[in-house]
Design a protein around this nucleic acid. Structure first.
Lengths: 342, 342
DNA sequence: AACGCTTACGAAAGCGCTTACGTACCCTAA
DNA sequence: TTAGGGTACGTAAGCGCTTTCGTAAGCGTT
């Protein structure tokens, strides 16, 4: 790699402004101990020359880091890509870069990612993937995040409970309850569920909410058909097919995310089951295309992009003594995929 | 930021292995001048201790950089997120990190991103966004990429023609022709087009392909309804509504990407137009959900994830004298959204 | 006028790494 | 034996920045 001298260094700016390296550094960092006149001159020269600090040198010297690591299950899942989109936007406004890592829903991979980002000396780590119901697994992730935080890193999680870490928390339980109550209010009693991976707390929480709503009507998830899938569209399709094959005849199917709901709709169509006439279908998250599906999808809206922004914003704020928890609102969005039971 | 000494340094590994810093560095870099025995010992110690090099120090010292910058229009567009997904996967295998930037389809923003990534000293820049039809605009982007390349950076572009730069090139023109020929073969003659942003070469190429196919049948785009939208789902919906409102009565609508096709389907449904009975609809890209739409979408498949992988793989290979161009295949995927004209 | 205190700045150390260069050591050849 | 040449390793410089420390200048106080 030929490293030509063409890249502007801080010393070039300093010389041009007629000050020392140290003064230039202080001026650009907005640090005190520099007269206004000099600071202005340095900033002016810096801008004129188009100077951009070498982030590696800056980080190495103990300065702030300008990159944030975002860990997602899969970036080509609209849930995550909308979160990422919001975060990238805020990062852009703050002059930061977002590094995206896939954990692929593998706790070991996630742990490795956290450790790797940490070793890479990113300044901020944000974990957007759901937590794991297994306490041991979850404890490992927490420990890694806390270790990173101990060393001065900033951390935030999205949709995941973690002690001593800032968090943006959609109320999955409430959402699960709301969507289920909606179906119950429409008269549905034979309700099937296409759940996401069992080991995720997001799934457990949404199921718990659903169970609460069902309990009010004397129903229990144990007695209802529940098929577990992988939060993907084909997964939802197959899960729905399984449910139908078992000759259970639900009047409504709850999919725990929109991608699977799309799969469910697809499976029903393949079986010539009309939605919502014969079976109502609901999703979760309200990803951007949910409203343009056929039929448009009744779902629980989470402010995904906003969640991404907020998580980063929280992490960027100076650390408070107590970790901040920010609940995100959710709305039940009723569209055409649900109808009262006939 | 409290910088505790807890982070492992290369010198720690070196001491543990009983060699000098330089030898440890050489051993881990796989550089020659180290006996096999010593190299093995160093690698072993490094692994045991869980050492990860500080990328900032490494970069500063003139070593290889471990981060690649990826510029997309919007990450929450499935076209880009699937490309990104493939790239992130390969990056993971190679121990690299992917930084994602939004250009938002703004050439100025894109230019700023390239310059910024360049100043940030990333090792690789990959531009996934379409090129611009305006030669001046495009020249600026090229110049910035070449400047980066001159300084030793590695560059690849996806779906964009750029002199002296490696490129992964889906044949948009061919794809546009193929999908149009499909409709023509089904007997459609009154064909409307929902195009993407006019200033993008991707759009121009797909349109050009369509025009070629149409010309064979004595048809011209100039005589057909063409509505420009922004490659988004709502954009496609509105564009389709516009077309219908103009009382043109196409028997088929070509959407230049799948997201807009979803919007088109939605608009048609709102108008109670049956697809494909009354109007056939086609998309482009074959994003993952295309097959589960109602009706499932006839589209042109591009190997998106693979394209992301390939672009990175090309950029990572030692530079060849001539820029590599890699054409990606495309398949016409015929599904339920098209039928012969009645 | 001498003293301390504050303010504005410069000199220089050092972050963790890569690499040019220097130096032992061993092997071969004369 | 000694010179010559390769190999394996150590020493140290230096990447571009931040930051600590030192110092000169300016101020008020007695």
């Amino acid at each position: 790699m030929s490293r030509s001298r063409s890249q502007l260094r801080l010393i070039d700016v300093a010389e041009q402004a007629g000050v020392s390296l140290a003064t230039a550094s202080r001026a650009l960092a907005g640090r005190e101990g520099v007269s206004e006149a000099v600071a202005d001159r340095v900033r002016q020269v810096s801008r004129d020359l188009g100077y951009v600090a070498n982030p590696h040198a800056r980080q190495l010297a103990g300065g702030a880091t300008s990159t944030v690591g975002l860990i997602v299950h899969q970036i080509d899942d609209l849930y995550f890509s909308e979160i990422a989109s919001g975060m990238i936007q805020l990062a852009g406004e703050r002059g930061l870069m977002v590094q995206i890592c896939h954990s692929g829903r593998d706790p070991d991979a996630e742990l490795a990612q956290i450790r790797h980002l940490s070793a890479q000396r990113v300044g901020v780590i944000i974990v957007a993937g759901s937590g794991y119901t297994d306490p041991g697994t979850e404890a490992m992730a927490r420990a890694a995040l806390l270790a990173f935080q101990e060393r001065g890193g900033r951390v935030a999680v999205i949709g995941r409970h973690a002690l001593n870490v800032d968090a943006v928390l959609p109320d999955n339980r409430d959402g699960g309850r709301a969507i289920t109550e909606h179906l119950l209010a429409l008269g549905h009693r034979r309700i099937a569920v296409v759940a996401g991976p069992e080991e995720l707390t997001t799934v457990a929480d949404r199921l718990a909410g659903a169970a609460e709503a069902l309990a009010v009507h004397g129903l229990s998830l144990d007695r209802l058909p529940v098929a577990y899938a992988d939060f993907t569209c084909p997964g939802g399709r197959e899960a729905a097919a399984r449910i139908l094959r078992e000759r259970s005849t639900p009047t409504a199917i709850i999919a725990l995310n929109d991608a699977m709901a799309i799969g469910v709709l697809s499976a029903l169509r393949a079986q010539r089951v009309r939605v919502p006439d014969e079976i109502s279908v609901v999703g979760f998250n309200d990803v951007s295309i949910a409203q343009d599906l056929a039929p448009s999808l009744t779902t629980v809206r989470l402010p995904l992009a906003e969640m991404g922004r907020q998580a980063l914003a929280m992490a960027l704020k100076p650390r408070s003594a107590r970790p901040r928890k920010r609940a995100t609102g959710h709305h039940l969005i009723v569209r055409d995929s649900t109808a009262s039971v006939s």
